[in-house]
C-alpha cells in the first residue's frame, strides 16, 4: 500500500466493514414429477398428477399432494386450454424486458386442473382481459421447444363464452 494511503487510515478507528464474496455452484434437481411435466411440454403435452386422496390435480405436478402428504402417481394429460382466474397488467418498464408494455400476466387454470400457473397473455388488448376469460396455449415453433413453460409462447383468448365465477371461485 502506498504511503500516502496508509497515512489516511486511522489505526485506532474500528473496522466497520469487510467484504467476503461467496460463490457456490449447485446442480438443480427438478425431481421426477416436474421432469416429466417439462419433458411433456416439449411434446406439446400438459401433464398433471392426481392426488389419490383428495383427487385434486396438480399442474405443474410436484410428485406429492401438499395437503394430504401422499405421493401423486397417477398422471393426467390435460388440454392446452383453460381460464384466466386472475391477472395483472404490467406497466412498469424494467431492464431486460422483452415484451412491449402494457402487457398482461395471468394465472391460468387449465381445464381439469386444481391449481393454476402464471403465464403470459397475448393477442388481446390489456383492457380486454378479464377473470373467467377462456384461453388456449400458443406453442413455440418446433425448433424453439425447451423442457419448460417457455415452450408455451403465450395464451390467447379462444373467443368462447367466459366461465361463470362459480366455476372457478375456489381457485382465486
Amino acid at each position: 500500500m502506498a504511503d500516502v494511503e496508509q497515512s489516511e487510515i486511522d489505526p485506532n478507528a474500528p473496522v466497520t466493514k469487510i467484504s467476503t464474496p461467496i460463490e457456490l455452484k449447485y446442480h438443480f434437481t427438478a425431481g421426477r414429477a416436474a421432469s416429466r411435466f417439462m419433458r411433456g411440454l416439449m411434446k406439446k403435452k400438459i401433464l398433471g398428477q392426481r392426488c389419490p386422496s383428495c383427487l385434486k390435480v396438480y399442474v405443474p405436478p410436484r410428485g406429492s399432494c401438499a395437503s394430504c402428504g401422499v405421493p401423486t402417481e397417477e398422471e393426467v394429460e390435460l388440454p392446452p386450454k383453460g381460464i384466466v382466474t386472475t391477472y395483472c397488467i404490467v406497466n412498469v418498464p424494467f431492464y431486460g424486458q422483452k415484451i412491449k408494455i402494457p402487457y398482461v400476466t395471468g394465472t391460468i387454470l387449465i381445464d381439469g386442473a386444481d391449481i393454476g400457473f402464471m403465464h403470459l397473455l397475448q393477442e388481446v388488448e390489456a383492457e380486454e382481459v378479464r377473470m373467467g376469460m377462456r384461453v388456449e396455449a400458443v406453442w413455440q415453433d418446433d425448433s424453439e421447444m425447451v423442457p419448460g413453460l417457455e415452450s408455451i409462447k403465450y395464451f390467447r383468448p379462444t373467443g368462447e363464452e367466459d366461465a361463470p365465477f362459480e366455476e372457478y371461485k375456489e381457485y382465486v
Partner: peptide, 26 residues
C-alpha cells in the same frame, strides 16, 4: 446422487413409513 428425486420425493416415503409404523394417525 439421488438425481431424479427432489427432496420431497426422497422424504415422502420415509415420513409415511414412520407415521404408519407409529400407530399414531397422521
Amino acid at each position: 446422487r439421488a438425481d431424479d428425486q427432489n427432496e420431497v420425493e426422497m422424504l415422502m416415503p420415509v415420513v409415511s413409513q414412520a407415521i404408519a409404523n407409529s400407530g399414531v394417525p397422521r
